[in-house]
Design a protein around this nucleic acid. Sequence first.
DNA 1: CGCCAAGTTGACGTATCGTCATTGAACGCT
DNA 2: AGCGTTCAATGACGATACGTCAACTTGGCG
Lengths: 218, 218
Amino acid sequence: MDGHPSAPPGPPGKREKTKAKNRHAILEAARHVFADLGYGATTVRDIIRATPLASGTFYNYFRSKEEIFQAIQDESALRIRPRLREERTKAETVEAFIFGTFRTFFEYVADDRQSFRAIRRNTDALRVRMDTPQIIAGFEELREDLETAIGKGLFPPLDADFLMAAIVGVAFELAERMLRRDDTDPASAAAFATALFLGGVRALSNREAPAVNGHCGA
Amino acid sequence: MDGHPSAPPGPPGKREKTKAKNRHAILEAARHVFADLGYGATTVRDIIRATPLASGTFYNYFRSKEEIFQAIQDESALRIRPRLREERTKAETVEAFIFGTFRTFFEYVADDRQSFRAIRRNTDALRVRMDTPQIIAGFEELREDLETAIGKGLFPPLDADFLMAAIVGVAFELAERMLRRDDTDPASAAAFATALFLGGVRALSNREAPAVNGHCGA
DNA sequence: CGCCAAGTTGACGTATCGTCATTGAACGCT
DNA sequence: AGCGTTCAATGACGATACGTCAACTTGGCG
């Protein structure tokens, strides 16, 4: 076994290093070009032209424009997902669960706005959103966490699928609006979303099991 | 004046009719091809091949693949927007405003699912959403209606921009989930979204003017 | 130092793009 | 109806981007 130095034992070796550097250079160039031209107008050649590499090299790293676009998104998703998961796992109240999720997400978006913008700009008046496998996996994680929280009695017994969808929808749309404002303020966006869902969850649980009693605050 | 028969006075004339028929044929073909191949994989040639027309003709009607895609979406948007507007204008309660909006939207989506699906399917595991000018205009309409409703005292004084974004986000994500389920049920999706926002709006208004009293139910 | 494996290069064949000169049909006037 | 004008359809054509591949360069290793 271990004939290939696929693991990190020895020093990286020049080959490995160049490979990583090239991949990174291509990704970085792609982020800029997508942000400049929009996804639709960008060509693989535009990307490779923004690096010192040759056109054929691109295809050693990615199979198509679509695939590198996915890779950019997946990278973001893999960076944010563990943080979100941690917030939710350690949450001991509904409020902590919801507020932690939104705050973490909005702060990340504000931080990494370059990736986020690159992703959403297409042509002048055309917004795009693509959900890659890693992003969709993030949605599923949220659904699982909601189901767990419901199982633990933290959340009332709601439709976890719909609730996940609602959270996702609000998160992305509010993020968009937040970035559009002059003073990007993740905290206030998170506060808005949290209040919305705290009230919403309470109303939903009253609906599904109506007329128990007037228990109002948490 | 009226040298050109641009308005509907005389009978349509054969030129006009063929033009409308061709445009319609191309749009119809595009809907099918987009649904079959996904937006990314579709070429203008694929679309025109699905009609009896020649390749050059396509460019008499649309400038690009992107533009015809927009046209399909805009058509949907123009069909649904008046209905939404009417619902909201005649609403005399917050509940009517919200429920009317969601029910109308979900029923439309369930009806016109072919367009909706065509729009969202790209490759196997890649979801896409594009917001065209007409769709974005629909968002703005919603924001205006919210502002009007706030002005009338129907809604509490909230951030209309964020609220609009939240409604839009929930509407699109829930629509997606709804279509994915075996029994597409607009009414129950609308009920879910309505309960969420009724509770959410109440909580948000308490937040902005906190500590009034413990009034819980409506 | 020399050999093998891995990776890069850019030219090449293919496919789609968008244009445009040509053609034929609809229109309106007599 | 006959006739000249206008307008849209056609499909061939040059331009552009795609993805591949044989030749070449470089790192790894005895």
